[in-house]
Amino acid sequence: MSDFGHTDFGLEDLPLRDDLRGQSPYGAPQLTVRAVLNTNENPYPPSPRLAEAIGRAAAEAAAGLNRYPDRDAVDLRRALADHLGHGLDAANVWAANGSNEILQQILQAFGGPDRTAVGFEPSYSMHPIIARGTATGWVSVPRTARFEVDAADAVAAVKEHQPSVVFLTSPNNPTGTALPLETVEAVAAAAPGVVVVDEAYAEFRREGTPSALSLLPIHPNVIVSRTMSKAFALAGARLGYLAAHPAVVDALQLVRLPYHLSAVTQAVARTALEYADELLGAVETLRAERDALVDWLRAHDFEVADSDANFVLFGRLPDRSEVFRKLLEQGVLIREVGPPEWLRVTVGTPEEMALFRDALLTATGRA
């Protein structure tokens, strides 16, 4: 009889890939504290009216759960295209379980052994993790001291490494930095493969900041990735999507698992899109709270990265781990991520931000 609790059996006894040995899984702490400000969620939940509408949609979907869902999620993709505009239709859009699955499918289709992906770091930590999981080589190119992507350096890196996938983020996580379209265009023109512009936080950008969606008719190798987890306040629904040339969507269907997007998820996402104005109603409030937080941090002599997202990267803290711990002791959870001496805080409600400000002053001895 097997002994699943046998203490002498571990990862080292499994035929795990060598490149995965010694690695740690992605994970942000999930703790019950007074202010959860570590995963860039929208702090404002769906209204009771919307929750009821989502419940009805889920109940209708549940009545047919004995059947597989629409394998290609055509109605949802059509609704997402209508939401994005830019002349897109269902053939330009693909959806999956969160933007991470979108990124994974991109690397499954265009990455793999003997292929390379390039990213500009510090940036989203899942990009190299997903690259490793798909056996894709990873090349990290440093950002500038202001956390920007230098267009000339980016083009030079692309020409040197000839990647099949390039990751650009706008706004960037964890720094909040938005990219000029000229930088995306320069990289797209030089890249031999696809250029993924991760716009998970696009809705939080300042008014007038353009999206890479406008480049799709000009650069068919550009892919714009989005999510409903952030501004749409649907992190628990797990719905990510992309817009690209129809040929890219066709390619992703070669690697997607059959029926990967449940009928319930599709129904919830379609319903949320019908309430887009309501769900996105908190964006302006969060932008204002973000800008006020940046001003407050700078007034208290913290260094702050310019942010176009719903979070702020601040420093410099000689012992950031100690500051993180002292904040947590006061019931405030933020994120120890990014370059040394920096911490990232998600913009929450006014009450949560008041807790954060008081706790930070105490944690850094500035109270």
Rank of each mutant, 00 (worst) to 15 (best):
L181C: 08
R206T: 05
A237Y: 02
E203D: 14
S225A: 15
A200K: 04
E199Y: 13
R205Q: 12
T227M: 12
P180H: 06
G208D: 02
E207V: 11
E185L: 00
R238S: 10
K230W: 07
V196W: 00
T183A: 00
G236K: 06
S211L: 05
V222Q: 12
V197I: 03
Y201K: 01
A191T: 04
P220C: 13
L216S: 01
G240Y: 08
K230M: 04
G193V: 03
V194R: 08
V222G: 12
D198M: 02
A188G: 04
L239I: 15
A231C: 11
A235Y: 13
A212R: 06
S211P: 05
A190D: 01
P220K: 12
A212S: 15
F232H: 14
F204A: 07
A200L: 12
G193S: 03
R206Y: 02
E185T: 11
S229M: 13
T227D: 06
V196F: 04
L213R: 12
F204I: 06
S229F: 11
A188R: 01
P180L: 03
A235V: 07
G236I: 04
A237Q: 14
V196S: 01
A188F: 07
A191K: 00
A231T: 08
P210S: 11
S211T: 15
S229I: 04
R206Q: 09
A237P: 03
P180A: 12
